[in-house]
Computed example of a mutant assay.
Amino acid sequence: MARKKKDDAERKAQSVSWRPNMTGDGNYKTPIFLSYPKPYQARQRDFIEKLCSHLNERDFSPRTLDVTDYNFKAPLHAIRKMMSESYGLITVAFRRTYLRKATGNYRTNIKTLKEYNLDGTWMTSPWAHIEPAMAYQIGLPVMILRESGVIADGILEKGTLGLSMPEFDLSAKAEDYLGTQQWRHLIRQWESDVRGVEARRGEPPSAF
């Protein structure tokens, strides 16, 4: 009898440990896709750690390829699979490449265009553009956070997704930004959309 109880307890522990989005006490957390370039500065790493803790407190389970999930297939295939299992996406567009001296529309010869200065700006990773676009195409709620100094082009350009794309400054502590009124408003709005997707997923199609 004691042996049977021990085996049952072990099976229960294993069933919790392998199930995605389950905490050690068996509580479910909503899986969301967290997209960000690999941090190259400690303050970027700290921002992600604080953001993940914040999301966990709101009963979300952040998932990031090659951090929480691993897949040996092509990256786009792995990303698509993870997104199909998620209910929303947050992208953090960190600084990645510094442009010490750069010019937009360099040597343009079109009268309606002008050169513009990009000295001292930053580019983020291409994945910070690709992953939000993929999520948008399958109807996931998307929120993009852009580190100050990163060029607001492509999907980072205001109005592209019709959503607010806040800029954050890592010269301050991560918890300071996550305590601002702007962040509280954005996370409430995004969370509401995510909960809506979660509630509707799996429902049969309706013609009215």
Rank of each mutant, 00 (worst) to 15 (best):
K12Y: 11
Y28V: 05
R45D: 11
Y28S: 08
W183F: 15
L145V: 03
G159M: 08
L170H: 06
A199W: 09
L89I: 06
I187R: 00
L161C: 06
R11A: 15
W190T: 00
G139H: 08
M165W: 02
V92I: 07
V142S: 03
P39V: 00
D25F: 04
T160F: 09
R188I: 04
S86N: 06
M1T: 08
G149N: 04
F208K: 08
Q44N: 11
M1V: 07
R200I: 07
S192P: 01
K158H: 10
R19N: 09
T121K: 15
A174H: 02
D153E: 11
L178H: 08
N71G: 15
Y36L: 10
A152F: 06
T160S: 14
G88N: 02
D169K: 11
S171E: 14
K12R: 14
K114M: 09
D46I: 03
F60Y: 13
S171C: 12
M83E: 05
P205C: 09
I90D: 02
L156Q: 04
T160W: 07
F94L: 08
L65P: 03
E85L: 13
E85G: 07
A102V: 01
K5W: 07
K6D: 12
V16E: 04
E203V: 04
I155T: 07
F60R: 00
R195G: 04
I90R: 00
Q44E: 13
E147Q: 12
R107L: 15
E131V: 00
R95Y: 03
S86A: 15
N56C: 11
A152E: 13
R43I: 03
L99S: 05
Y177D: 00
D8F: 12
L161F: 12
F94H: 00
P20I: 05
H54Q: 15
I110H: 00
Y40V: 12
S15L: 09
E191S: 13
W127A: 11
D169R: 12
I48S: 08
D46C: 08
I130P: 00
S84Q: 13
T112C: 01
Q181M: 14
A78I: 04
F208M: 11
K4E: 10
S15Y: 04
S17R: 15
S53N: 12
Y40M: 15
S86T: 02
R63E: 13
R3Q: 14
E203G: 14
S164P: 11
M22Q: 07
V197Q: 07
R45K: 13
E57L: 07
Y40N: 11
